[in-house]
Each structure stands twice: as structure tokens, then as C-alpha cells.
């Protein structure tokens, strides 16, 4: 069955196409290892532009549903949906062993527009306001981690008035505003730091840092996007998984 894209909805076409293709994978209509139709075929199937197809496919690649093989095509990822050991991890605001040793200092809290990549990562249009928070995590008087947080403004306008130095956004969502976190996607990448972030981390521009991007969902909505920039120092990131006792 071919699902159709609605042109009346304000949702971006590529987001709609993303959902449709994702459903094909979730429903096993497209099975693991299978080659998906080419861009041209998808353009014709859904009567959309090449750019729309490309954006939707790229997002599926980025989220691990699809794999692109140079010169061969795009395939459904074999790892996706594979059963692994089901374990639980305690979700912490900072991925270090001893959070208590760190001091958080807010260096910016303002409202911006999510132009470019940011709008894709947040899944909202570029003309929707977002709350932007920039914070330093200080360990023994050194900035170890720089955190940028982005919250679609309509999710929780009251956050602007909250003290975010002593409270975490997720705690506030859960305990005060009844916004439940249902899923957290984490991406890790090694990047060369931009000038602006370098200054806040007290390192030189272009130095390698670990970037952890964290998409926090409530249902299908991204309610928070965190970007943690971790410089090379003696602090290690830490996460512990435990098998749940039955």
C-alpha cells in the first residue's frame, strides 16, 4: 500500500516522508538487509522532489534505520530492531561517575530561531522559537564540559523563568510540568571545535572534542536537544547498564 503525502499539512514534506518510510521498516514491509528503491523511484512513488527524498533518507540513515553503500545503494540496517540484552540505565543529567563534583554555571539563557540543522534535529520548522541554554560544567575550577540545550518554546515557556543552574530541565519537565520523557537518542561524534565553543571550553579553535547529542522525546515530539561538548581532560564519560532483576 502506498501512503500519500498530504500537502495541506504544515508539516514539512520530508518529515512526512520520513515517517512513512520509517513505518515501512517498523512494519517489516522493508526487511533487514533489503535494498530500498532508488531516489528516482521514491520521487515517483510519492510525487515529491529529489531534495525531499534525500532529506528523508538521510535522516533515516542518521538515525540508523538505513545504511548507504557507496556505488551500491541504500539498505535497511541489519542491526536495527535486532534483539539485544535488555538492560536499564539510570538517566543522569551529566554522563560522569560523580556528578556531585561538578558545578554548573549558566552562561546564556535566551530565545533563538532554529535555522539549518537545528530545525531537523528538533523536528520543528525554522520559524518556531526555541529556548537556548548554554552552560559550563566545572570540575576543579576547569570547564570540562560545555552544554547547549534547545527546547521548542511552546513545549514549556515557563522554563525561561526557572533557575536552571540548580535544577535540570528533565527534572522540571517530569516533576513540575508533567512532561514525560519516553525515549532518549544519543549520538557520539568526534569533532573539531568551532571558535565560539572553544572559547567557552578554554581550548584553542579546531581542537578535537567529543560531542554527545541527545534527543529527548516525549512520544514523537523532541522536547529537548542537548549537545554536550567534552574536552580532552582527565574526566571520562560514564554510563552503567544493569540487567533488571525480575
Amino acid at each position: 500500500m502506498v501512503e500519500l503525502i498530504s500537502r495541506d499539512e504544515h508539516e514539512k514534506l520530508y518529515m512526512q516522508l520520513f515517517d512513512i518510510l520509517k513505518r515501512k521498516i517498523d512494519n517489516k514491509e522493508w526487511t533487514a538487509g533489503m535494498q530500498i528503491p532508488t531516489e528516482d523511484q521514491l520521487c515517483r512513488m510519492f510525487n515529491v522532489s529529489r531534495a525531499t527524498v534525500r532529506n528523508a533518507v538521510l535522516e533515516l540513515v542518521r538515525q540508523g534505520y538505513l545504511i548507504r553503500q557507496q556505488g551500491k545503494g541504500t539498505f535497511v540496517s541489519r542491526n536495527y530492531g535486532q534483539e539485544g540484552l535488555l538492560m536499564t540505565a539510570l538517566f543522569k543529567k551529566l554522563w560522569v561517575e560523580e556528578e556531585a563534583l561538578f558545578n554548573k554555571e549558566i552562561i546564556a539563557k535566551t530565545v533563538i530561531m532554529p535555522v539549518g540543522e537545528l530545525s531537523k534535529e528538533l523536528g520543528i520548522p525554522e520559524n518556531k522559537h526555541i529556548l537556548y541554554i548554554k552552560a559550563r560544567w566545572i570540575y576543579e575550577e576547569n570547564t570540562s564540559i560545555l552544554q547547549e540545550s534547545f527546547v521548542p518554546f511552546n513545549i514549556c515557556p515557563q522554563l525561561l523563568e526557572e533557575d536552571l543552574e540548580t535544577q535540570s530541565i528533565i527534572d522540571l519537565f517530569e516533576k513540575k510540568y508533567s512532561i514525560k520523557t519516553t525515549k532518549v537518542n544519543n549520538y557520539f561524534e568526534l569533532i573539531n571545535i568551532s571558535k565560539e565553543i572553544a572559547q567557552s571550553l578554554e581550548i584553542s579553535e579546531g581542537s578535537p572534542v567529543l560531542l554527545m547529542s541527545q534527543q529527548v522525546f516525549s512520544g514523537d515530539t523532541v522536547i529537548l536537544l542537548n549537545k554536550l561538548y567534552k574536552k580532552n581532560d582527565k574526566i571520562r564519560l560514564f554510563i552503567s547498564f544493569q540487567r533488571k532483576a525480575l
Binding site: 533563538i112 530561531m113 535555522v115 539549518g116 530545525s119 520548522p125 525554522e126 522559537h129 537556548y132
Partner: peptide, 23 residues
Amino acid sequence: IFEYPHIPYWFSIEQAIKVVKAS
């Protein structure tokens, strides 16, 4: 105020242009 887009002062002119176009 939310009828208008918001940007911080450190945004570049190029980013401001993208905001104007998107908004």
C-alpha cells in the same frame, strides 16, 4: 513579541538572513 523572530547578538548576519527567510 513572539510574532517576531528572536536571535542572540552573536548570530552572524548570514544566520540573521536565514532567520528572516524562514520566518
